[in-house]
Amino acid sequence: MIQYIRSLRWADYLFYVLTDPRKLMKTIETSESRIIPGGIFIVLFSALFEILTVSLLGAETQYFYYKVTYGVIFLFLIYIIEILMISSLVDLFCQFSGYGGKIRGILNLVCLAQFPRLLLLPAVYIFKVFHFAPVFFYALFSIMLLLWTALIAVQGISEMHGMIFSRAFLVYLFPFAFYGLISFLLTMLIMVNFFGYFS
């Protein structure tokens, strides 16, 4: 493990995440290990950086220490569940569309694709230091980095199954459409129950 860290081979994955997602996918597919540990760490740091960024924007109290400990663990678990669900639904949709199932590749890809989200903290911090609309830039950078993350995943999926970009985009969109529908139906159900109960 120490040798692996010293060798800096893991840095190649991160470099490809930022520069060439298609090459990243090829490297993942030729990788010996089933799960790339770096991916898990990126998700963990993504949770930590998200909480730090949000905390920077407000006036913090002692509650901050709960956020950076239990809060980070909780957010990390949420991210992991989210990634597991997105990966499985993407894989499911791929299989329904006639492509082979490659859950290991998709899982590693989606985890590593979170790397750009770490850049949110330094980007927002600059605007926080100069007191120049930090909340606005937080929202703006969040959206931009989310799109970047999606772009990496879509390119990776496209490379993995040799499908055209637009189809890969649809495949990646499927889990979100599915969750959107489920959430909408659940909200409707809760509202109907809520109003029914109080009326």
């Binding site: 905390s55 109290t61 770490l118």
Partner: peptide
């Protein structure tokens, strides 16, 4: 990234109510 995280934690701790 590590530097910005450390700075953020120090900043938040110093300005904490």
């Amino acid at each position: 990234l590590t530097l910005s995280a450390v700075l953020a934690i120090v900043d938040i701790t110093l300005t904490m109510k």
